[in-house]
Amino acid sequence: MSRTPVFPPLMKGLAAGPANPFVIACDQARRGVDAGLIAWSVSNERLRAALVLAPEEPLEKAMVALIACGVGFQNAFGALAPSETALHLEWAGGIRVNGAHCGALHVGASTADPTAVPGWLVVALDLTLSLPDEWEPGETPDWTAIDQEGCGQIDPIDLLESWSRHTLRWINTLEDPDGRSVLARDWQGLAWNLGSQISLAADGIRLDGTFLGVDENFGMLLKTGGETRLIPLTALLEEV
Rank of each mutant, 00 (worst) to 15 (best):
P137G: 11
I157V: 14
L159A: 03
T140Y: 00
L194N: 08
L159K: 02
A112P: 04
W163C: 08
P156L: 01
D158K: 06
E149T: 05
R165Y: 10
A201V: 13
W187I: 09
G119A: 15
L159R: 03
A184F: 11
R169V: 05
E161M: 11
D186P: 12
S199Q: 07
W163E: 01
S130P: 04
N172D: 04
V117P: 07
L129R: 05
L159D: 08
D113Y: 04
P132G: 08
W163L: 03
V182L: 04
Q197S: 13
I157W: 06
D126N: 13
I157Q: 00
S110Q: 09
A116G: 09
W120I: 11
E175D: 06
R180G: 03
G150E: 00
W192F: 15
R185F: 15
W135Q: 13
G138Y: 15
S130W: 02
G150T: 09
E139T: 15
Q153D: 13
D126M: 07
T173G: 11
G189A: 12
D126C: 10
G150I: 12
H106L: 05
L190K: 03
R185Q: 11
W192L: 09
W120N: 04
T167A: 06
P132A: 12
R165L: 12
D147V: 00
I198L: 08
I146S: 01
G195S: 13
L131S: 05
A201F: 01
Q188S: 13
A112G: 13
G179C: 08
A191E: 15
T115E: 15
W170D: 01
Q153V: 11
P118R: 10
V123L: 06
G179K: 09
A124K: 02
W170Y: 14
V182Y: 04
D147L: 03
E136Q: 15
W163R: 02
P141A: 01
S196K: 12
L190N: 01
P137F: 14
S162M: 11
D142K: 11
T144G: 00
R185S: 14
